[in-house]
Every structure is written in structure tokens, then in C-alpha cells.
Design a protein around this nucleic acid. Structure first.
Length: 940
RNA sequence: GCGGACGUGGCGGAAUGGUAGACGCAACGGACUUAAAAUCCGUUGGGCCAAAAGCCCGUGCCGGUUCGAGUCCGGCCGUCCGCACCA
């Protein structure tokens, strides 16, 4: 111990934290200039750059613990990289458009803008109290016309580039929010925000053509090596690529309404065509609609399907139902083979062509269908080991691999082939086959190559590639092209639909177009941007206030100068968040969304951190948007986020009173008796039931307010605890015990540094030539921790970094405690070094405490500007190593040998050990395996 | 139904194929104190044993690969997540 008992003051975050925040702010330490980047473009060397970004928040009014966790992780990375010599970009902004502002306007008669900016001010203050190393000079709010004017410009650029489309389509209508939703925004049949069951409606909408990039969005997933596998897989499934055949079934004219001649069907199982029993189309398929005109019963059936179709749960459990239209389709292999055409409730108009051929033996849905309507089935794939003669299908379709059976006629013979070979043979044959008229097959040989309608997709590409350019889902043929096209073509189909961005809302980015009765849709001229929202709006009625504004809609057509109307839909807020990361690189740019000299050097974001809930929505949209920005010259890359990390949620115990009401943690007292925990109401003492640990939510009242924690323990404690208890990708449970543990540790560090400071005060400036044992032990602990903590932070294993810091703190206090006499000068030097390393290592996590400790060591510099410690690798190497010795894989002894001991010497020493002799029972070992520096295993 | 992840003490969790349980929490014992708080020291997977030494068992279950498996492979069971009539 040091000569006198040391009694340092307690560390008081309440005064220290604001003080350091002000110092950082005043010194502008976290502001990042683009000058260096621009200079580097002219050939001057620059420090390496690092862009760390956390998903920006919606300004709901208050931050929650999820924000604390998310932004702490990002801040650790930012501070660490800064110390490591990078020029770090770490900005923050606000995803400021959206429904809650309009709801607030309705409920509280506040204007959405005022409400939003109040919330931003409040949340900004909260974030600042966390001590995040953010460049606030780059702050953006997406509701600022200075931001969305560029978004409107890009929309027009996309329009010009053919990446925007206006079309009528069936849309997901959220009856509560009174707006449409993209497919991605419908979760289990409900609106992602409102939770209301989604309805189908027919509306004219603006679409961004994300499906043009389906193939690229899919294949480039493989290049995103620093993304979680899980997210890549989710996107892959969402894009939903499938290879198959587009087969044209001719329709028997005698049975078919005038004007309809054929039906296009997409299938991935061309091999099962001999097993076909029927053809079915979606209720809203054009042929169904046409046929219904003359068939009231069919019309009634279709209406029935649509009624049932509004509730998603009904769709999932609904029985398969069909209606025979009386139309007959001609089998592509045999002109004499006719298949009934049904309208069926389980066929989706959205996918493929909205029409299928049913092969009951090998598709469960089709089997359920034929079993209901008595259409029978023909097995055409025989499972391995089954006798084809006895193989029958009853209630369970067989969709596995096998050998083709019952699949031979004059036209084609598939019998005996594998599924894969049969698919290929069918494709090869049908893509060379042309019909001479609506019905009859021509001989497969001797026909010319296709030409015309689909240029560049002639016979030459058939076998080599199945790729197609964009537009995966051509509508059913209108009649003219059929003669020039083969009976079937290979096709790649995607589940991914175009992104409908029209929202019938006020608080969003206006879509900058004008509707003119003479000129049609006219883009707003660039000089007239931004199209801003009118201020004088009312929210006393449901629906879109823009639509009923008395004057805002009225404009002059930019082309013909006649009166025209503005588009009153605004953009989906996911558009706002699809490019904010690019805007952060040059948020001051008034003339363009980005500056290529800057944006191409900052992007891609090196480390993006946010919630898994955006695995598809935001991340897929952003990947698309970046491609669209590249196509229109706003960026020079495809992938916006090189590294992605998805953090887990913050969860908390729930409490319920006897009458079943949720109780907030703040009013509950927990009592512990042995291992038993009991809860009661603090006020009344009434018992409270301890419920499941769940995501913090207002409805379950298991919310902890970050403000309360920061006020009582300080930001550092909140930050430390958020990092310490669980791996960052998993959920972390907020517990009072855990917070107190973090609090104790801050105080302990403060005491340790205080004691170290006394010793270090008289340390020599010169590095000693030799170190005594105590000094050497301390130095090894310090440099060992340095190596381990650095490694853990690099890998974002923050909980491991925390554990190594605890370990180092333990070694540090052991070292202080073990000093019996007055410390030698080499020890004092080592103590100062160790204290500095300790402080620098926990600085990214608890920056305020670290600054305070740094000052306590006598430094007048700001720690936030100091470099990461230099590692002395020699200190990590021991001269002797202790190896565990196993016999047959079980540990029996330890042996300490020189680091560079030769294997034969180790072997001999091991065999001489008593414990090993005993374990061997006198028998000679069969083999001795020595893994240098790690372990010895004796095989008996 | 399809796809994926996970399963380690009382709890959170650690562990490039090489001593399982680091580190923290909780618990227990002790020191300091009139007392408490705070702090400090010690013990803590299970079993055999008075104790130590020593031995046995142990990473959801069953097998396999390997000198050696929490880790790799196959099959089950369980939990969680994503998608879901996608032809």
C-alpha cells in the first residue's frame, strides 16, 4: 500500500459530465471537415477515413433505451477509430416525416412542423447528455425543405431515367392511417405502423422500379461480407428469385370468349407437365374478368374471393375453391389434350402471370384442389426406391427428386430422367417449338428462329443463359406476338415487387409533378423546386389535407400554361431515409444532393449500426436508392453500407398487479430471500406478480427512462451497462442490479486512478532501462489488456472488451495492494503507464469519467484528442509457458517449460511426471502429441 | 409448411478444434464499523470424501470424425426469428 490511506472524493457524474460535454463542444473536437478529403483529391496525403453511422431516429419526443444502446455502440467505434488515427465521420439527424406528427396535430391541435421541431430539440438535448462524439454541424432533418428539395430533384432524375412509373395497381390500404403501404410494410397482414388489418384497393400510384435491380440486389448480397448472414438471407428470400418456364397454353376458341387466344403460365416444374390436370387463374386475371362478363355465377364467385381476400388470416386458412369457366386449354405437348380452366381463390395475380397449370401429384395445393373437385392425379415423378407401378398419390403430394414416369408421347419422352434433366429437356424442346395457329403444334424441327417482338432474346441465348433483362413479369400476350414466339421461354421470376411510394398524407415530401388535362403528367421544373408543403392545413377530418386545401393544388401547367393541379400524394418516408447517409457527407450543399468529390470518398459507410427490424425495409430500399443515384450520377457506387451490425433489443421484466394491470418498474420494490425474488408495490406493499422479460414497451409499462438513469447515475454508467451484460447482437436485460454494478465500477476506477496518481506523481520522465518484477507484472497486465480490448472493439464484441477491462482493473488493484515498501522509480513509471492505458481503454465506453481521470493524472490535454496506446508486443510473450498435460484427452498435470523448449525435451519431461506415470499405469505411451505453446496429449 | 439462428453454473455470459465456466451479477463466510451504508478479503458446476490429495460426472439428447469436440459432421428434441397458397 501507499504510505497514507488515500481518500479520494467520489466521482460525481452530475457535475463532470456536462463540464466535459461543454469542453468537447467548445473545442469542436468531433466536427469533421471535408477540406482534408478535397485536398486529398488533389494528391495530398490524408489520414484514412472512417464513416460510422447509427440509424437516425424518428423524433418521437424522447429517446428510449434502445437508442442509448444503439448510439453507445456507434460512439465506441467512433471514439476508438478516432484514437486509432482515422478521420471519423459520425453524424446525426432526424427521420422527421411521418404519421405521428399528423396524429399529434389531430389530437392536440399542434402543427406537425412545430410538434416535430419541439421533439427534435428535446431529443437532441437528451442525446447530447449522453456525451456522444457526434458532428452536430451536419445535423439534418428530412422535413427540412433544404433536404427534401434534393429528394424531389432526384425523383425527377429517376423519372427521366425510367426508374419511376405511374400505374394503376392493387394496393395495400391501411384503413387507420388512411394511406397505402408497400408490400414490405405489411407485417402479417397488418400495417407496420398502425397494426390495422390491411385492405386491398385499386389506386393509381407512383412506383420506384426496384425490381429493375432485383438481380443485382440479389447477387451483390454476396459481396456484403461484413453484413450478418441472417440479414442477407432475409433479403435473398424477399427478392425471391426463381428460374422456370413461361409456357403459352393455347385456348380452344370454341370455349373461349372472343379476343382471348392463349394463357401464359409461369412454372418452375416444367418436368411435371405430363401430370397436369387443370389450369387455374387468379380471380382478377383478365381472362377471368372477361369470362365473368357473360357468366353471372362466375362474377359472383370472383366477388366472393375478393371479399374473403381482405383479411390476411382468412386467406391463410381458407379452403381451396375454384370455379370452372368452361374454357379449355390445350396441353403444350399434345393438341388433343384439353385441360379445364378454373378461376381459383389460391392463385395470386401478383406473382408470375397470375395463372398456373395444376399438377396435383407433385404440388400439395393442387392436390387439395383436385381432391375437392374430383379431377384425379397422375404421378410423373417416382421417388427413389419406389416401384413406379405401385406408386400412387392420395393425400400428400410428392415434391422431391426422383425418376420421371408416365411422361412419354409422340412429341417428347421424359421417362427415366431425373427431375433436373426433364426440366432441361422440356425447356429445350418447347423453346424451339412454334404454333402454326392457336391450337396445333407444328413439328419441332425445321422452323426458323424467332424474331421481332423480343429482340435479342432469340434462340441463341436459350441454352446458355436463363438471365433476362428487367421486367420479369410480362402481362399475358395480347394476341399479336404469339406466332413469332416459341411455346415456352425460360424465365427468371422475382417475388420482389416495385416500390409504391405514394402516400395520401400531409407530412411527407411532396411528389414534384403536375397533372394537366392537356399535357398529362408534367414534372415540376427544377427551378421551381422545392415544392413545399402549405402551412395552413387542418387535421379535423380524416384523409389527406393537401387534397382538400383550397388553393395549394392549383397551379399553371409548366408546358401549356393552362390551369393544372399538383400531385397531392407525398412520398413514403422510407424514401427520406434511403439516402440520408449520402447527404451527411455534404449536408451544406445547396445546389445538389451530393458532391461527387466528397460522397464517393466517404461512402460506403464503414460501419452501420441499427435494429434488425430494418433488415428488409430500410436496408433494401437504401441499396436500391444508391443504385438509382448511381444511374443518375449522384454517387459512384452500388452498395451504401460496407459493414452492418444489427443490435439486440433492450428488454425488462414485466410486473402485474393482482387486478391484472401492468405496473411500471419505478413503483415496484424487489425483495430477495435466498434465490427467491418477490415484488411488491412500493407505495402500498401490495404483492406484484413478476412476469416475463419482454421488449420495453409503453403498453406493458416496463420502460426505463434514459433521462432518469442519466440523472441518477450519469451517462457513463448507462453506456457501460448497455455494453457490458450481453453480446451486442443479442437482447440485453435492463436490471437495477446490473446498473448498480456499473455504478460501483465507475467509482472503483476513480479510486484506482486516484491511488495510481499519487504513485505516478513522482514517476521519472525517462523510461527506465530495467523493470523490477512488480513493474513487469503490471506492464504485462496493461499491455495484455490493451491487445485484448483493442481486438474485442475491432470485432464489436463490446461485452468481451468490458470483461477484459474488469480483469485489468483487478490486476491493477492487486498490483497496488502488493506493494509493501515505498515504490521504486521503475514501478512508479510502470504505474503511470498502466493508469494511462487503463484510462484510454475505457475512454470509448465512459468518456466523461476517462477525461476526469486523465486530468487527475495531471494532464491538461483533452483525452478525446489523444492517440490509442502503443502496444509493446514483447510484453505479451512469456519466457516460460505452462502447458496442460492430458492423457487420452483428460487433463492430468501441468508442466512449465521454456518458451522455446524442443518437443523431444518436453516429451521426456512430461513422461517423467508422477501423475502421468500413474495415469499410464506403467505402460509405455503409444504416442505423445506436443502442440507448441498450447498443450501436450499423451496417448496411452 | 419453407428457411435460419440459438441451446454452457442460481442468472447474464467467456472460450483461433487444445486446461469448460474468463468477467460480471446473485448467494454465502469474514474484515472494518456502536450500527448501517460504502469498501476490502475469501468461497461458490455436481458427486465420492470429515478434510485435503485424488478420482468420477458435466456445455439439450443420440451417434460420428479426431490424439483431443462446447466448437466440426449426421439425426432427434426444445426455444426464438423471418417468410408464407410465390406456382
Amino acid at each position: 500500500m501507499t504510505a497514507e490511506p488515500h481518500k479520494p472524493d467520489r466521482y460525481n457524474p452530475r457535475t463532470a459530465e456536462p463540464r466535459w460535454q461543454q469542453k468537447w463542444d467548445a473545442a469542436g473536437i468531433f466536427a469533421t471537415s471535408n477540406d482534408e478529403l478535397k485536398a486529398a483529391a488533389n494528391g495530398k496525403p490524408a489520414k484514412p477515413t472512417y464513416y460510422v453511422l447509427e440509424m437516425f431516429p424518428y423524433p418521437s419526443g424522447r429517446i428510449h433505451m434502445g437508442h442509448v444502446r444503439n448510439y453507445t455502440m456507434g460512439d465506441v467505434v467512433a471514439r476508438y477509430k478516432r484514437a486509432r488515427g482515422f478521420t471519423v465521420l459520425h453524424p446525426m439527424g432526424w427521420d422527421a416525416h411521418g404519421m405521428p406528427a399528423e396524429n399529434a396535430a389531430m389530437e392536440r391541435k399542434v402543427h406537425p412542423r412545430a410538434w416535430t421541431y419541439q421533439n427534435i430539440a428535446a431529443m437532441k438535448a437528451q442525446l447530447q447528455s449522453m456525451g456522444l462524439s457526434l458532428d452536430w454541424a451536419r445535423e439534418i432533418a428530412t422535413c427540412d425543405p433544404a433536404y427534401y428539395k434534393h429528394q424531389q430533384k432526384m425523383f425527377l432524375d429517376f423519372l427521366k431515367a425510367g426508374l419511376v412509373e405511374r400505374k394503376q395497381s392493387k394496393v395495400n390500404w391501411d384503413p387507420v392511417d388512411m394511406t397505402v403501404l408497400a408490400n414490405e410494410q405489411v407485417i402479417e397482414g397488418r400495417g407496420w405502423r398502425s397494426g390495422a388489418p390491411v385492405e386491398q384497393r385499386e389506386l393509381t400510384q407512383w412506383f420506384l422500379k426496384i425490381s429493375d435491380f432485383a438481380e443485382d440486389l440479389l447477387t451483390k448480397l454476396d459481396t456484403l461480407e461484413r453484413w450478418p448472414e441472417k440479414v442477407r438471407l432475409m433479403q435473398k428470400n424477399w427478392i425471391g428469385r426463381s428460374e422456370g418456364l413461361l409456357v403459352r397454353f393455347a385456348l380452344d376458341p370454341k370455349t373461349t370468349p372472343a379476343g382471348e387466344r392463349e394463357l401464359e403460365i409461369f412454372t418452375t416444374r416444367g418436368d411435371t407437365l405430363f401430370g397436369a390436370r387443370f389450369v387455374a387463374v387468379a380471380p382478377d386475371h383478365p381472362i377471368a374478368q372477361t369470362a365473368a362478363k357473360k357468366n353471372p355465377a362466375l362474377a359472383a364467385f370472383i366477388a366472393e374471393c375478393k371479399r374473403g381476400g381482405t383479411a390476411q388470416e382468412a386467406i391463410e386458412t381458407a379452403e381451396k375453391q375454384g370455379f370452372d369457366t368452361g374454357i379449355k386449354a390445350i396441353h403444350p405437348f399434345d393438341p388433343t389434350w384439353q385441360l379445364p380452366v378454373y378461376v381459383a381463390n389460391f392463385i395470386l395475380m401478383d406473382y408470375g402471370t397470375g395463372a398456373i397449370f395444376g399438377c396435383p401429384a407433385h404440388d400439395q395445393r393442387d392436390l387439395d384442389f383436385v381432391n375437392k373437385y374430383g379431377l384425379g392425379n397422375t404421378p410423373v415423378v417416382c421417388p427413389p426406391g419406389q416401384d413406379p407401378k405401385s406408386f400412387v398419390i392420395a393425400k400428400t403430394a410428392y415434391d422431391g427428386d426422383g425418376t420421371l414416369i408416365n411422361s412419354k408421347n409422340d412429341f417428347i419422352d421424359l421417362n427415366g430422367m431425373t427431375v433436373e434433366a426433364a426440366k432441361e429437356e422440356v425447356a429445350r424442346k418447347l423453346e424451339r417449338t412454334y404454333r402454326s395457329d392457336g391450337i396445333h403444334l407444328s413439328p419441332p424441327a425445321g422452323r426458323g428462329r424467332p424474331s421481332g417482338a423480343r429482340s435479342g432474346e432469340g434462340g441463341s441465348r436459350q441454352s446458355a443463359t436463363v438471365e433476362r433483362p428487367p421486367h420479369p413479369n410480362p402481362l399475358p400476350a395480347s394476341g399479336e406476338r404469339e406466332k413469332s414466339r416459341p411455346v415456352a421461354e425460360r424465365q427468371v421470376n422475382y417475388r420482389l415487387r416495385d416500390w409504391g411510394i405514394s402516400r395520401q398524407r400531409y407530412w411527407g415530401c411532396p411528389i414534384p409533378v403536375i397533372h394537366c388535362t392537356s399535357c398529362g403528367v408534367v414534372p415540376v421544373p427544377a427551378k421551381d423546386l422545392p415544392v413545399t408543403l402549405p402551412e395552413d392545413v387542418s387535421f379535423d377530418r380524416p384523409g389527406n389535407p393537401l387534397d382538400r386545401h383550397p388553393t395549394w393544388r392549383d397551379v399553371t401547367c409548366p408546358q401549356c400554361r393552362k390551369p393544372a393541379r399538383r400531385e397531392t400524394d407525398t412520398m413514403d418516408t422510407f424514401v427520406d431515409s434511403s439516402w440520408y447517409f449520402a447527404r451527411f457527407t455534404d449536408p451544406w450543399n445547396d445546389s445538389a444532393p451530393t458532391d461527387r468529390a466528397v460522397v464517393d470518398r466517404w461512402l460506403p459507410v464503414d460501419q452501420y449500426i441499427g435494429g434488425i427490424e430494418h433488415a428488409i425495409l430500410h436496408l433494401l430500399y437504401s441499396r436500391f436508392f444508391t443504385r438509382a443515384m448511381k444511374a443518375t450520377g449522384h454517387v459512384g457506387l452500388d452498395e451504401p453500407f460496407a459493414g452492418l451490425f444489427t443490435q439486440g433489443m433492450v428488454v425488462h421484466e414485466t410486473y402485474k398487479s393482482k387486478d391484472g394491470e401492468w405496473v411500471e418498474p419505478a413503483s415496484v420494490t424487489i425483495e430477495t430471500e435466498g434465490d427467491q425474488r418477490r415484488a411488491k408495490l412500493t407505495a402500498t406493499g401490495a404483492p406484484v406478480e413478476i412476469g416475463a422479460i419482454e421488449k420495453m414497451s409503453k403498453s406493458k409499462k416496463n420502460v426505463i427512462d434514459p433521462d432518469d438513469i442519466i440523472a441518477s447515475y450519469g451517462a457513463d454508467v448507462a453506456r457501460w451497462f448497455m455494453l457490458s451484460d450481453s453480446p451486442p447482437e443479442r437482447d440485453v436485460e435492463w436490471t437495477e442490479r446490473g446498473v448498480q454494478g456499473a455504478w460501483r465500477f465507475t467509482q472503483r476506477l476513480w479510486r484506482l486512478v486516484g491511488e495510481a496518481a499519487e504513485v505516478a506523481a513522482t514517476a521519472p520522465d525517462q523510461r527506465p532501462v530495467q523493470f523490477g518484477e512488480g513493474a513487469q507484472t503490471l506492464r504485462k497486465a496493461a499491455h495484455g489488456a490493451l491487445a485484448k480490448v483493442s481486438d474485442a472493439i475491432e470485432k464489436l464484441h463490446f461485452n468481451v472488451a468490458v470483461a477484459h477491462l474488469y480483469e485489468f482493473a483487478n490486476a491493477f488493484s492487486d498490483s497496488i495492494g502488493s506493494q509493501e515498501q515505498a515504490p521504486t522509480s521503475d514501478y512508479r513509471w510502470a504505474m503511470r503507464e498502466a493508469a494511462e492505458i487503463l484510462i484510454k481503454l475505457f475512454n470509448p465506453m465512459m468518456p466523461h469519467l476517462a477525461e476526469e481521470c486523465w486530468a487527475a493524472l495531471g494532464h491538461t490535454t483533452v483525452l478525446a484528442t489523444q492517440p490509442w496506446p502503443e502496444l509493446e508486443p514483447a510484453l505479451l510473450v512469456e519466457n516460460t509457458v505452462t502447458l496442460p498435460v492430458q492423457v487420452n484427452g483428460k487433463k492430468r498435470a501441468d508442466i512449465t517449460v521454456a518458451r522455446d523448449a524442443k518437443n523431444p525435451d518436453i516429451e521426456a519431461a512430461v513422461l517423467a511426471l508422477d501423475a502421468i506415470q500413474r495415469a499410464l499405469e506403467g505402460k509405455p505411451p503409444k504416442k505423445v502429441i506436443v502442440v507448441p505453446g498450447r498443450i501436450v496429449n499423451v496417448v496411452a
